[in-house]
């Protein structure tokens, strides 16, 4: 059996216990075999990454075509819920009906400044800097396109953050939200900002339960980012929710 087949069979679990032990022994003793194994593994992992990305976007698209989740509550529970809702709405109507999610969003939204790659005289001719120049000039449409191009070759979360911000600054809320959601899963420089904008978008959508979750996330992280705004918003939406 040649090395390539041996490696492939090892990964696909087609070897006996003895043969597996033989591969493991070779990995420890034969540097050439180990290098061949590593390069095979790099290919396998690269395909796994590409395929996972493809599947993820397939499922996300599938979700968009599905009807919204139906509640499992029985009729009695619906009735109870309806009565409770009427009471809650009735009690809170006078106090909270005046401010919509959009109003709250507008009150708290501020354009995220470019602190990642500030444009200076020395770097303003860099090709990679076109996106940040456009961003700083408020040309968010161009910035969006440029950041998108950069992301194709460089999956840098900070670039993705400014891509999301460019979308948000053009009121492309759903597209921005998608990007922030990707970012919220990883640890990077603008984590707190990303969570904050996610919360704001949910507030705008009047999905106060989710907005609350994200605002609380910042609290759990003991973040000091926008701490006063967060406190104020949490109070308002807790009463709304």
């Amino acid at each position: 059996m040649n090395n390539e087949t041996l490696i492939q069979d090892y990964i696909a679990n087609r070897l006996s216990t003895n043969q597996r032990a033989e591969v493991e022994h070779l990995l420890e003793t034969d540097s050439e075999f180990k290098a061949e194994f590593e390069s095979h593994k790099d290919m396998a992992v690269a395909f796994k990454i590409a395929e996972a990305k493809h599947l993820k976007s397939h499922f996300q698209q599938l979700e968009n075509t599905l009807p919204k989740e139906k509640s499992n509550f029985k009729t009695v529970k619906y009735a109870a819920l309806a009565i409770a809702s009427v009471l809650v709405i009735g009690l809170s109507y006078n106090i909270f009906n005046t401010t919509s999610g959009n109003d709250l969003f507008e009150d708290h939204f501020e354009i995220s400044p470019n602190t990642y790659q500030p444009v200076t005289r020395s770097n303003n001719s860099d090709k990679d800097n076109t996106a940040f120049i456009a961003y700083e000039n408020g040309n968010y449409e161009l910035a969006e396109n440029e950041f998108e191009t950069l992301l194709e070759t460089n999956n840098n979360p900070n670039i993705r953050y400014y891509y999301a911000a460019s979308l948000l600054n053009q009121s492309k809320y759903e597209l921005a939200l998608k990007q922030f959601q990707i970012l919220n899963k990883i640890d990077f420089d603008y984590n707190d900002e990303s969570i904050w904008y996610t919360a704001l978008i949910y507030i705008r959508k009047e999905d106060y339960a989710l907005a609350k979750t994200y605002l609380k996330k910042l609290g759990n992280k003991k973040s000091t980012f926008k701490v006063a705004n967060r406190k104020e918003l949490l109070e308002v939406i807790t009463k709304k929710n």
């Binding site: 790099d42 290919m43 992992v45 690269a46 395909f47 796994k48 990454i49 590409a50 990305k53 194709e152 070759t153 999956n155």
Partner: peptide, 14 residues
């Protein structure tokens, strides 16, 4: 976690 090299390779596949 995939290495930077594996991520870069994944991008080239397209």
């Amino acid at each position: 976690l995939p290495t930077a090299n594996q991520h870069a390779l994944a991008k080239r596949l397209s």
